[in-house]
């Protein structure tokens, strides 16, 4: 039997209403990445992660478990699962099987984003445990009433904290605040910029002539919803890299399969496999800009490709030997220790 849609969506709704997120995280998982960075708490301008990068290890674990359940008799018990989840946070147990390697990756991306913004002279704070998931999964799945309630709650919370400007770090949170919240929240007037736009506006210095090349994989949301196509290319070129375009890139980018992970994991894997083939035809070093793209393409590619988030690539280019730094990223060693993230 395929995965049952209604109880899974029901769990998302219950979690957001009861626990503030589709996939509630511990305070340590949500804010641990900022340890030691001395980010001021709050302020008018804040870096807003929406806890999306931090969710990736749990989402990855969940999709692996869902893939095992898909087409099994256990799908009949999802209704009971929803009932239990009302009283016991089931995602806590999913979190137990989440990969610490992927959490380190997510933490590194966020820390590198902070480093890049600081190098560009941008000043901002962070809300720590006062930050909420923006609600993209509810919006995308047409759970409008629950999404509207959540969006109004998050907006009131941000206004109470005096936030006037958000610097978002992922495509989904960016789209929610820029396109979905104004439809559901009356007089939504918080300014929203994505960090790639902020960095590109800061006119990055052109580095030495390129000594490396990367294949760019655009996020569908950045490319076709938010018109963020040129900025990442500009930043990569300014960092001294040669940018290669796969078949279907920019405004015509091909989905990574990510949106299907929770309900149709086998289809998600099929779509990501198609994208990996297209990327591989252009080169081995792939750059992603979205945590879902990263996790899906990495999983589908295995050893065929080296997939890095753009923040890691740009930050590594600022180092003397960026090739070694990138290799270290993939091998899960030097940079983790250099930043002191557990």
């Amino acid at each position: 039997m395929p995965l049952p849609i209604a109880p899974i969506l029901g769990i998302f709704v219950d979690n957001v209403r009861k626990r503030g997120s589709v996939l509630p995280l511990s305070k340590r998982t949500a804010t641990g990445w900022a340890r030691g960075l001395d980010l001021p708490r709050g302020g008018e301008t804040v870096l807003y992660t929406g806890n999306v990068y931090q969710m990736i290890p749990a989402i990855d674990a969940m999709s692996t478990q869902m893939a095992m359940l898909e087409n099994s008799f256990l799908t009949r018990f999802f209704g009971i699962g929803r009932l239990v989840n009302k009283f016991v946070n089931m995602s806590f147990f999913m979190g137990l099987t989440a990969s610490s390697e992927k959490l380190r990756h997510a933490n590194r991306v966020l820390r590198d984003i902070v480093g890049l913004l600081r190098n560009a002279g941008v000043e901002f704070g962070y809300l720590y445990e006062d930050e909420f998931y923006a609600g993209a999964l509810l919006y995308d799945d047409g759970l409008d009433e629950a999404f509207g309630e959540h969006a109004r709650r998050v907006t009131a919370h941000l206004k109470k904290l005096g936030v006037r400007r958000l610097i978002t770090v992922d495509p989904h949170t960016t789209q929610m605040f820029r396109q979905a919240y104004p439809r559901f929240v009356k007089d939504f007037d918080i300014e929203v910029q994505n960090y790639l736009e902020v960095l590109a506006q800061a006119h990055p210095r052109r580095a030495e002539p390129a000594d490396g090349e990367v294949v760019v994989h655009d996020s569908c949301i950045y490319a076709r919803y938010e018109n963020i196509c040129e900025q990442p290319r500009e930043l990569l070129r300014a960092a001294g890299l040669s940018v290669r375009e796969p078949e279907l890139s920019g405004k015509s980018t091909h989905c990574c399969g990510g949106p299907l992970e929770s309900l149709f994991p086998a289809e998600a894997h099929r779509i990501s496999g198609i994208r990996v083939d297209l990327l591989e035809a252009e080169g081995k070093n792939v750059v992603t800009m979205c945590p879902f793209c990263w996790v899906n393409l990495s999983k589908a590619a295995g050893d065929r490709l080296v997939v890095n988030d753009i923040a890691n690539v740009l930050a590594a280019c600022g180092q003397r030997d960026h090739r070694a730094a990138l290799k270290a990223h993939v091998a899960e060693d030097n940079l983790v220790r250099a930043h002191g993230v557990a």
């Binding site: 047409g142 759970l143 409008d144 076709r224 405004k251 949106p259 309900l263 149709f264 289809e267």
Partner: peptide, 30 residues
């Protein structure tokens, strides 16, 4: 199953807001 990737919408010659329509249908079914 729709990915909401907007590949169709970006190329629709009539400018139909396809992803909004899919969301509407999902909302109705929910």
């Amino acid at each position: 199953s729709c990915l909401l990737c907007r590949m169709c919408e970006a190329n629709c010659p009539s400018g139909v807001h396809i992803t909004d329509n899919i969301r509407s249908l999902r909302s109705l079914i929910n």
